[in-house]
């Protein structure tokens, strides 16, 4: 459904992504793990055109083109078919929880307001925040804000939702509520690509784990294989380091 090949990105002469290829199939829940600075977030941002890639090919939503040659129209098509959940939520601060969700529907999708509100309420219900619909982001806890962020993404009914470290900015006791929502999404068949440091999520919820380091994909496979029998030395070391701290 979504394929990228040889994705490259560099900042000021530093190669962050050195040719990444990923295949995302419908219903996949892919966890991307790896040490910080390995390019996980950059990968997500370039895949979704939030940042311009320096090279690579994309096949998605009827677009089949090199990243550098994407037209504005094609960029719009791509954005229209992905959802994005940010690390620091990025809810619209001047909009209520409900308006945060309806905004994209009304402005970008031209959905009627009453219809949009119906969709938004349904999305809020899925993340268990119907009673907070008229709250502004500043009046919500981090966990609640992130759940609104997820509701905002699912309300647009995208082909695939990208999660950029959705729980990293949260207090530890709030991580659970967000992970639970994500788990529900995964089990309902939503296609998800998740950059995460939550090894439990990667191991128990995703059907594929990608281990990245230094702008490369070092290893990928079923979570069981990666966590129990990693074939690469780097993966082994990363997992021992990170699991030692849990």
């Amino acid at each position: 459904m979504l394929t990228i090949e040889g994705l490259k990105k560099s900042y000021a002469g530093n190669d962050i992504l050195k040719g990444i290829s990923i295949d995302v199939n419908k219903g996949d829940v892919i966890s991307i793990i790896g040490p910080s600075g390995s390019g996980k977030t950059t990968l997500l941002r370039t895949m979704t055109t939030l940042e311009e890639a320096d090279g690579g090919h994309l096949t998605f939503a009827g677009v089949d083109k090199d990243f550098e040659k994407l037209t504005g129209k094609e960029v719009n098509t791509i954005r229209r078919n992905v959802g994005f959940v940010f690390q620091n939520y990025n809810l619209f601060n001047n909009k209520t929880a409900l308006q945060n969700i309806t905004e994209g529907l009304i402005v970008a999708r031209k959905v009627k307001k009453s219809e949009a509100e119906k969709i938004a309420l349904k999305a809020l219900e899925r993340v268990g925040l119907t009673d907070r619909k008229n709250h502004y982001p500043s009046q919500l806890s981090g966990g609640q804000q992130q759940r609104v962020g997820i509701a905002r993404a699912i309300a647009l009914n995208p082909e695939v939702i990208f999660f950029d470290e959705p729980t990293s900015a949260l207090d530890p006791e709030l991580v659970g509520e967000v992970l639970k929502v994500m788990q529900d999404l995964a089990s309902s068949g939503t296609t998800m690509v998740v950059v995460t440091h939550q090894m439990s999520f990667a191991r128990d919820v995703s059907n594929r784990v990608i281990f990245m380091a230094d702008g490369h994909i070092v290893e990928q496979g079923a979570p069981k294989a990666i966590f129990e029998k990693p074939s690469e030395q780097r993966t082994k070391k990363f997992l021992t380091d990170i699991l030692a701290n849990v």
Binding site: F84, F86, N88, N90, N93, E103, G104, A108, A153
Partner: peptide
């Protein structure tokens, strides 16, 4: 700047 990115990611144009 996350506000702009969030707008783009729900499909809005930069101007909107």
């Amino acid at each position: 700047k996350g506000q702009m990115e969030a707008g783009l990611m729900v499909g809005m144009q930069p101007r909107q």
